[in-house]
């Protein structure tokens, strides 16, 4: 009895999903397609969907004359550094808040929770001045400072670490292992799923970040990819094929990273939004 109605529903919903998926991915697919178009095709009217004579000329121009290689390396270095630092600071602290007893733990944690409402943009002006005094302006170090320790990172790791069995840690203590040995040999391996999650999150956030690097980096030699494409698109808006190639170099790595580690990424996304 209900079969035909359900089938109609399925067809309608599937159609909707196909159209929506195409609409969502169209700008990204068009970006890739256009990045392979020779100049005349990229500027053709009406606009083309696919290149008739695909070429790598836009990429060649970017890497040969627009210092794309340099910007790519800057982005890779900044994002990797941010990821490493974030893991070092947040995993140790998150684990301690979950599993180690120490005086003031509860109060300190409550305090951190209260800080969540403070937006990152609030601190940018004084932090800029602070970094100027420390001589960190216009350096990778200055760009990664906000990523080093984060409330999100600490909460994420703590939430996961709460599930580690106390007996396991206690048994190691009875065997005479030091806290540091327990952390390295038992805790870290057991936390590896959440370490991957936090790592992917931090890497993507650092890679995509714009306002803070824009403030810190004044010399375009140190530009990360988002800064590079923002300035390239302002100077070369007519060279649409080349701008699209630059966008592709910026976006493709994060999309690929996301596709490879999707499961871990979604875990972090959901953990960040539901009850703590």
């Amino acid at each position: 009895m209900t079969m035909p109605r359900l089938t109609v529903e399925k067809v309608l919903v599937t159609t909707l999903l196909v159209i929506a998926s195409l609409a969502a991915s169209f700008p990204l697919l068009w970006m890739v397609s256009m990045s392979f178009m020779p100049e005349a095709e990229a500027n053709a009217f009406p606009a083309r969907l696919f290149p008739h004579e695909p070429t790598l000329a836009n990429y060649a121009e970017l890497f040969a004359h627009q210092r794309m290689g340099r910007f790519l390396i800057n982005s890779l270095l900044v994002s990797s550094l941010a990821t490493c630092l974030s893991l070092i600071f947040n995993v140790t602290a998150g684990y301690a808040f979950a599993k180690l007893a120490f005086r003031g733990r509860q109060k300190l944690f409550q305090f951190l929770l209260a800080l969540v409402v403070i937006p990152g943009q609030l601190i940018m002006l004084p932090l800029f001045f602070q970094l100027k005094m420390l001589g960190l302006l216009n350096s990778y170090g200055g760009v990664v400072v906000p990523f080093m320790a984060s409330l999100f990172g600490i909460f994420l790791v703590r939430q996961y670490a709460l599930s580690l069995p106390d007996e396991m840690l206690q048994a190691a203590r009875v065997d005479g292992a030091s806290e540091w040995q327990i952390f390295r040999r038992i805790v870290l391996p057991n936390l590896s799923p959440i370490i991957v999650t936090l790592g992917v999150f931090t890497f993507l956030m650092a890679w995509n970040d714009f306002l803070w690097p824009l403030i810190v980096l004044s010399d375009d030699h140190n530009y990360t990819l988002p800064l590079a494409i923002a300035s390239l698109s302002q100077e070369h808006i007519q060279d649409s094929g080349m701008v699209m190639a630059c966008a592709t170099v910026t976006i493709a790595p994060v999309i690929l990273l996301f596709l490879a580690l999707q499961r871990h990424y979604v875990r972090g996304l959901l953990a960040g939004s539901v009850k703590g």
């Binding site: 070092i88 600071f89 947040n90 140790t92 602290a93 684990y95 301690a96 808040f97 180690l100 007893a101 120490f102 005086r103 733990r105 300190l108 951190l112 800080l115 403070i118 609030l122 601190i123 002006l125 004084p126 932090l127 001045f129 602070q130 400072v145 906000p146 080093m148 320790a149 409330l151 600490i154 806290e179 952390f183």
Partner: peptide, 29 residues
């Protein structure tokens, strides 16, 4: 100091210097 203090100290120092100080800095500024 418990081991826990040592484990949270680096992150707390970073948050104090690069987050709390600038929050008050912003207010003062």
């Amino acid at each position: 100091l418990a081991p826990g203090h040592v484990f949270v100290l680096p992150a707390m120092l970073v948050l104090a210097v690069f987050f709390l100080v600038p929050v008050f800095g912003a207010l003062a500024m």
